[in-house]
Design a binder for these strands. Structure first.
Lengths: 396, 396
DNA sequence: CTACTTTTTCCACTCACAGGACAAAGAGCG
DNA sequence: CGCTCTTTGTCCTGTGAGTGGAAAAAGTAG
């Protein structure tokens, strides 16, 4: 099938496309209620969108007491690709234009193998999705990488955990390979956009998303827009000092939050505890697998292992202290906790909440929900689809 | 004189007014170069502005090689009032429409006396400025108060250091008394706007302003706009924990930044040191005045007093650590240090810089200037004038 | 005084858009 | 089934914003 390359010609068309994306199929009359345009103007713009084939007619709507209205919807053949490159695995998903996931693959992988190897894998995963009949091609792709990105160019800059990616023209390269427009962003920002589009942050304009995975990062949304900072490194909270003169960190400092609590730190602590026979549960798992990860700690904690619960609580306290500072500073309307360690669930959340509610002033915490992300591993890929659709559904 | 009450009728007019405000008198042709409107359209809008008397003709411009252009400028009779209410003093200033200060008064005062007493004083200061012939009336006023403000309504909310102001309708009341439009904001946000308009932050879009006065606060500017947070308490960094299990703070916690370093804390520390005879310099000053303030510490430090220098350095270190965290999180393009203690100058700045450059990642600090504010005590009042002019110079 | 520039005004033309009139399509009711 | 009322979609005209060319006005440089 020929891919759609059309773009909305003006702000009205962009507005309509986004309404259809976020609200699904809709009647012309209902659209009219939402956009404050005269019926004539609306009809003209809708007709033009129909001509571009970005939207298609979709039968008749139910009557609202009079003549039935004609439904329209985004072209059901449109396909977006969401790619979430983590430190140790990749998620790739296909969505339709309404950003609903049609197919989703997750595979282990090590970013440190470098961009060429990783993109080979991403492309083969995309091909697999195509082969299963979910898509004949892609109209756009949004990619998340675990490090800072110079956003306009779509190029990673000085990423600590992925040397070899520095300056690699991700956007350019993938756009060539996939044959469609591509946007690149930090993985945490993608997660924030995902939760904003389809998760817990749908109604909030200013919020933070704290992602605790292999590292720790934070997505910042201001007035509904992702804030990326001057050099694209905003939200890099993993290296805020959480413990004075604490553990040495890979960054050269001591006491960084990430050195004390993150997927990696948790695994290290658990291994330590197992080897010192502090926890039979963890020791058994280490014996069985040869190695421990955050998932093991989560499982042990669920089984009631005291050592694991302590590790989680302590980590939650440290994280909560840092978040308390951010809440004082940023005064968000919502804080979302997500990432690989959400399996730690309520123990973690309780520890964080305690610290934040204690450490920030009532005015900032008074009406501040602190919740787990709703979308789990799909937040990133949905965010990717959202990123590229925001780009494509804006005036050319 | 009859006050101007007109407002720009559309975005073009607002744009032109702001250009005249920021760039001073300008010829019609030069304006045309900046606004991307057709000559005819520009002429129409300028004529309408002339009709409203918001702008006036101002003779002929120098020739650029052909016919000389007519200059226009903002009405020179326009007057804005900037009011900066601090914890222990008030600044009131009159500006023209180009936000140049025509007169400035500073008086000691205690906010805790409550809004009624304070506004009585503010009004008498404003009257004094009028009496000196600088203004016949005011076209707008911008007020800064040392605490969180619900911005749209212009009402302080739960301000810790100014009980009695909670919920007081500052905007409403002053608008009545002054007979002109009024906008109210946090004093730190005003300072940020001042430095943005006429100080060090003129060319930066994302920056932080840290004000160290009686307390400590931070102004946040995102994309050129002040960010106020969900409940108006964004930037309230005085109660971020800087020292684990540190000094008790008025807020009920321990180790708040403000408890360890601020005008008040510094005065307390200095008095302590003087009484314990750790510093002859400070003891002498205590003897002479009966009390010590941050100004005394600054003077003693300038005279080479080791104890005072240590106090400043230690405070700078604590503040720097907190700012380092904010820099990692926010990735600003500039950090401005200001407020009453800027007299501490380079000792303070050096300590802060050391901590930030050490405690944040290179990508965030690489090209990050950390500088003292340029405007000193006028930043707040200029910010106030800027606040109200932004409001008045926007489409009605 | 002449040739060339720049600024300003004037005017005709295009385009976006609103809103009314009217036709089409359906619901509800007797 | 016919009648009335409601909603939806189309057509058409009026209005106001805005553009761009032509020409007048006001200079400069020789």
């Amino acid at each position: 099938m020929r891919r759609m390359t059309a773009r909305p010609a003006n702000a009205h068309q962009a507005r309509l496309l986004r309404l259809l994306r976020d609200g699904g199929p809709n009647s012309r009359a209902q659209l009219g209620d939402q956009v404050d345009l005269s019926r004539s103007k609306l009809a003209v713009e809708v007709d033009r969108l129909l001509e571009t084939e970005l939207v298609v007619a979709d039968g008749l709507a139910a009557s609202r007491g009079g003549r039935r209205s004609h439904n329209i919807r985004l072209n059901p053949h449109l396909r977006f690709l969401g790619v979430d490159i983590g430190a140790t695995s990749v998620d790739v998903a296909v969505t339709n234009a309404e950003l609903e996931i049609l197919g989703h693959i997750n595979q282990p992988m090590d970013v440190r193998e470098g961009p060429v190897a990783v993109f080979e894998q991403v492309l083969s995963m995309a091909t697999k999705l195509k082969a299963s009949g979910l898509a004949e091609g892609f109209d756009g792709a949004g990619i998340g990488v675990p490090g800072p990105v110079r956003f306009p160019e779509g190029v990673p800059v000085a990423p600590p955990i992925m040397p070899g990616w520095d300056g690699f023209p991700v956007r350019e390269a993938l756009s060539q390979d996939l044959g469609c427009p591509v946007m690149v962003d930090n993985d945490v920002n993608l997660m924030a956009m995902g939760e904003q589009h389809a998760g817990v942050a749908r109604t909030v304009h200013d919020f933070l998303v704290v992602k605790i995975g292999t590292g720790i990062g934070c997505g910042i949304v201001v007035g509904g827009e992702v804030y990326r900072g001057t050099t694209g490194s905003a939200g890099d909270i993993g290296h805020i000092q959480a413990v004075p003169d604490g553990r040495p960190c890979a960054c050269g400092n001591r006491g960084c939050l990430e050195a004390h609590f993150s997927g990696a730190a948790l695994a290290w602590d658990a291994t330590e505890a197992a080897q010192q026979q502090l926890s039979a549960e963890l020791a058994g798992r280490l014996e069985a697998n040869g190695t421990l990860s955050a998932v093991d700690v989560a499982a042990a904690a669920a089984a009631g292992d005291a050592t694991s619960l302590d590790l989680i609580r302590e980590g939650g306290n440290r994280t909560g202290q840092v978040i308390a500072g951010l809440v004082s500073f940023f005064n968000p309307g919502l804080v979302v906790i997500g990432g690989g360690v959400t399996g730690l669930g309520h123990t973690l959340l309780a520890a964080i909440r305690t610290q934040v509610y204690r450490g920030s002033l009532p005015l900032a915490t008074g009406n501040l929900p602190i919740v787990l992300g709703e979308l789990g591993p799909t937040a990133g890929v949905i965010g990717g689809a959202r990123l590229i659709s925001d780009h494509l559904f804006s005036p050319a």
